[in-house]
Amino acid sequence: MATGGRRGAAAAPLLVAVAALLLGAAGHLYPGEVCPGMDIRNNLTRLHELENCSVIEGHLQILLMFKTRPEDFRDLSFPKLIMITDYLLLFRVYGLESLKDLFPNLTVIRGSRLFFNYALVIFEMVHLKELGLYNLMNITRGSVRIEKNNELCYLATIDWSRILDSVEDNYIVLNKDDNEECGDICPGTAKGKTNCPATVINGQFVERCWTHSHCQKVCPTICKSHGCTAEGLCCHSECLGNCSQPDDPTKCVACRNFYLDGRCVETCPPPYYHFQDWRCVNFSFCQDLHHKCKNSRRQGCHQYVIHNNKCIPECPSGYTMNSSNLLCTPCLGPCPKVCHLLEGEKTIDSVTSAQELRGCTVINGSLIINIRGGNNLAAELEANLGLIEEISGYLKIRRSYALVSLSFFRKLRLIRGETLEIGNYSFYALDNQNLRQLWDWSKHNLTITQGKLFFHYNPKLCLSEIHKMEEVSGTKGRQERNDIALKTNGDQASCENELLKFSYIRTSFDKI
């Protein structure tokens, strides 16, 4: 039985969820670079991206490699990797027998973001014989899940209580170790020597080791999670996991709180800001991140802002960003909400898709409305799209047979046209069989910064309504002859009103 693990408890099935942008060198404390989270699957090609990484700022997932063999891993080693800020997950990587050479110096898994409450997941690794993470000293947050690894031993010899604050939620089941077939031998045991430290858990006094050649490092209890030197002297209180010299914040392997210019500090002093819960960055760093993602459509890219001495992905609820200094300031009234469309555009074809934009005031991208039916549609669209004030790209209304009016965009005031449909149009209306009105132009103002209007096959939309939009939106004169079809717009509506004058002759039985 794995020490510190839980057996036999019912657990939810383990679901495996399925960018080499360097964020800056980590400095003297770390020998390499800070790398983003990685999802490495199918083959070993991307694994080489770990070569210079000291910190993975995010998670590391290595999974679904069915053609790899043990010899493929023999020359692979990433000794610079010290810390993973989120979680480490391995799933069905064939041929991998140990992690001792792959990650010989991995010391800390912070667990800032977890995989279903777990910071370390080893699942269905069919050839893994031992973990071998002999320098792993601290899992700051989260638990361990090690399950269905039929060859995995050296679990009962690990004292997880020396690595985690609590072992109650560890789930370590259905491994070879369960069948008591392992016969784990710690260093020196074969020669009758006791080389590794022994600890007591559940009444068992057991030597602690990761492999037959690597003991588990056990520091004096007084050192807590700070770690200790090879001689057993406690590291500085700002260290986490390990250090090369005692009581020196510049000799830590990793930091308990924050890293700044080669030393570990309790908090980031001005003019620095907390970033990702582990390091200090200056304003320029946060500003660069903001600008890199301002026009990016890459998933996970955030326009970072500053709030409460932190550089964070977005302002919290009730705050909006001051564009001059990136500071989050309290909103006066309802907060603006910028919604970034991942692929640059979004099609609204149902109430469900409209709900995804609920509360958005600025759309960074283009909207395509293609709704053919739905219950209580006008009210639903207004509830979900009615706060949109600005669209950076274009607005396209296409084959939306259920629409009679666009009044559900009740606050839309600006279409920038930074991206144009077919390279020309910022407003595009095609084949809307029941569209009769755009907006009530006596109450609604709309500016279209650039781009043209396109109207074709809107049989109940009168040309007068379209011409009014040209005047109000500032697009009059931009359109070419064929942009607004004269014969297919309003051709099934009563669009022309003329005053009919009647004269009559009164007659009676005795007068003409």
Rank of each mutant, 00 (worst) to 15 (best):
A230I: 09
Y171C: 02
F66A: 07
N202E: 08
S213G: 12
R46Q: 06
S225L: 08
I201P: 15
C219Y: 04
C264D: 00
H127K: 03
D261N: 09
C239S: 00
E130F: 12
F123A: 03
Q204F: 13
K310C: 06
N150S: 10
G132R: 01
Q276L: 08
D165M: 06
I201V: 14
R113P: 03
C252M: 03
Q216H: 10
V167L: 04
G227T: 07
K191L: 06
I146G: 01
P220N: 07
R69H: 09
E57N: 10
L60V: 07
C235Y: 00
R298H: 03
K224W: 03
F115V: 13
N52W: 03
V200S: 13
C243T: 00
E238Q: 13
I163V: 12
F205M: 07
C35N: 00
Q216K: 03
P249E: 03
T189Q: 08
E168V: 10
H48K: 07
G232Q: 08
Q276G: 08
N202G: 13
L89T: 05
H212L: 15
P269S: 08
G227C: 07
P31G: 15
E207M: 14
S161I: 05
Y118N: 03
R256H: 05
I82K: 05
N179A: 10
T211H: 09
R92S: 06
E33Y: 00
R297P: 09
C215R: 15
E33M: 14
K148W: 03
L44W: 10
C209D: 03
I185A: 03
D39C: 15
H28L: 10
R69F: 13
K193N: 08
S98N: 08
H59S: 08
E97M: 04
T329L: 09
E266V: 12
F91G: 15
N257H: 08
D39E: 15
T157W: 03
T85N: 03
L102R: 00
T140I: 08
A230E: 13
E51K: 01
L289K: 15
N117P: 04
D261L: 08
P313L: 04
C328H: 01
P330L: 08
E207N: 01
P197G: 05
K176T: 15
L60G: 00
L99S: 01
L76H: 08
G188H: 12
Q287N: 08
R256N: 11
F73A: 12
L164I: 09
C328N: 02
S317H: 04
F103G: 00
G203I: 04
I84M: 01
M137G: 11
S323H: 15
L133P: 01
A254V: 08
D288P: 01
T107M: 06
M38A: 05
R145V: 13
T45C: 05
N138G: 10
L96P: 01
N242C: 10
H212N: 13
A230L: 03
M137W: 11
H28G: 00
R41F: 15
I82R: 12
N202L: 06
N42C: 10
D86I: 01
E314L: 05
C255N: 01
N170H: 05
L233G: 13
P334Q: 09
C153H: 04
T189C: 12
H48R: 03
K191Y: 10
I172F: 04
G262T: 11
C280P: 00
F78C: 03
T199A: 07
A119E: 00
E238A: 12
S161C: 06
I62H: 01
R162V: 09
L260S: 03
E151Y: 14
V265G: 03
N150K: 09
F258A: 08
A230H: 11
P249R: 07
E238H: 11
N170L: 08
I109W: 00
L81M: 11
D75Q: 10
I40G: 00
N150E: 06
D184F: 14
L81R: 00
M38H: 12
L96A: 02
N150Q: 12
R92H: 09
D277T: 05
N105A: 05
P70I: 08
L327T: 07
V206H: 08
S324A: 15
Y134H: 01
L327K: 15
I146V: 10
S77V: 07
C182S: 12
L64V: 09
G300H: 12
L240V: 05
D169A: 06
H226S: 05
C223S: 03
F73V: 05
L164Q: 04
T107D: 02
S112T: 12
C243H: 00
N42H: 09
C239G: 01
V206S: 14
N202H: 12
S323Y: 14
E33C: 14
L327W: 03
E33T: 06
S54G: 01
R69S: 05
M125K: 00
R74V: 15
C293K: 03
C234H: 01
G232A: 06
I146L: 14
Y87G: 01
G241M: 02
N135K: 14
G111D: 00
E207R: 09
P316L: 03
S237D: 14
V253M: 11
Q216W: 08
C252I: 00
L327N: 10
A190D: 13
Q245G: 11
L152Y: 01
P316Q: 04
